[in-house]
Amino acid sequence: MKARLASMRWGRRRTLVAIGLLAIPLAGVLVFRIMPAIASFALSFTEWNLIAPPEFVGLSNFEELVGDPTFWQALWNTIYYVGGAVPGIVGVSLALALILNRGIRGIKIFRTVYFLPVVSSMVAVGIMWRWMFNAQYGLVNAGLGFLGIEPINWLGSQTWAMPALIVVTVWREIGFYMIIFLAALQGVPRHLVEAARLDGAGPWQRFWGVTFPMISPVTFFVSIMAMINTFQAFEYMYVMTEGGPRDSTLTLVYYLYLQGFEYFRTGYASAIALVLFTIILVITIVQWKIGERRVVY
């Protein structure tokens, strides 16, 4: 009996140390992450302009959301953007990684160059590309003119603004994902590839038969990561198009920003936030479910 008491005393001492280590981090996570998340949920059932006291309005924000064509437009735009950017990012970065993994000389230089946009802020990249996409004097149209293509009013056209933003997104992100793929490719056991070669598999068969299955978990993970990130697109829209022309590049986060911080409709903005959260949650859950099934080799 006495024995148990002594061990509890010691245990409590260690618990105290643990509390000491965790006090600040946990308090911070609670106050600055968990509470705002919950508050966001609660706010979506209120009407509050930040001046008058908040008013409980039940589901009316969501009712309004359902009937709000701008919201649907923003949702569609976001899906369009994600649907364009993610395959572009994953495809290009994987292709580049595969090439770089073939014993290319100067791999370091290529890696550095491809990584440059990753460290550049989206704001700077956005401004830079706004100039690139300039309808009259931009380099993009100059290049296309070289190929005999008529100038396109990229950012001024409802048709072309979103593709332009997708191009910028892919351009900036590929370096990042390329590095992840490269690391994964280097983790593919060499002997497997060699074995396949001895079995008579050509380069193409070796890729689909050996390399790709080995890196498919990473491909999956990278796609999810890219999806979650692109769903929250805001900066390019803010810097390059302000959501226009005619809301054609208005995304969910941009709409949230407008409602919350331009029109001060915090309740309505929180309702949009909840939609965003739900989408990301669903993606995450899908990732878990699928990930459980197929990740381990």
Partner: peptide
């Protein structure tokens, strides 16, 4: 909390 996008927390954080 990792699953909660930063943007979702913006408004309460502002408050």
């Amino acid at each position: 909390t990792m699953m909660v996008p930063v943007h979702v927390e913006l408004i309460p954080q502002f408050i």
